[in-house]
């Protein structure tokens, strides 16, 4: 065994960077694909499992928006133009 191979054994990370570019690119591609696949699957799983909850939430959200809209209109009408006057804040 030579001093050089001993160094490789001691500091493997130093030699990681000396990889063949094609192999490194292939590894990178593989990693990106795996990541993308995992992300897609996670998305699909989430929406499949939570569909009901999500729809309910969206409905609740829309309802709340309508209530807010009505409130603003009422206030504007009462206050003749200024929605952020002290009266309103109080």
């Amino acid at each position: 065994m030579t001093g050089n191979s001993a160094l490789e054994g001691l500091y493997p990370f130093l030699h990681d960077k000396e990889q063949d570019p094609a192999a490194r690119d292939a590894g990178l591609l593989h990693s990106i694909e795996a990541k993308a696949r995992e992300s897609r699957e996670a998305n699909a799983r989430f929406f499949a499992q939570q569909a009901g909850v999500l729809i309910d939430a969206a409905k609740a959200h829309a309802a709340a928006y309508h209530i807010l809209w009505d409130l603003v209109h009422t206030l504007l009408a009462d206050n003749r133009g200024s929605a952020i006057s002290k009266d309103v804040a109080a």
């Binding site: 065994m1 001093g3 191979s5 160094l7 054994g9």
Partner: peptide, 12 residues
């Protein structure tokens, strides 16, 4: 180049 004898002992 360091000390190859020492490094070999380490590796062994």
């Amino acid at each position: 180049e360091g000390n190859s004898i020492a490094l070999q002992a380490v590796a062994r």
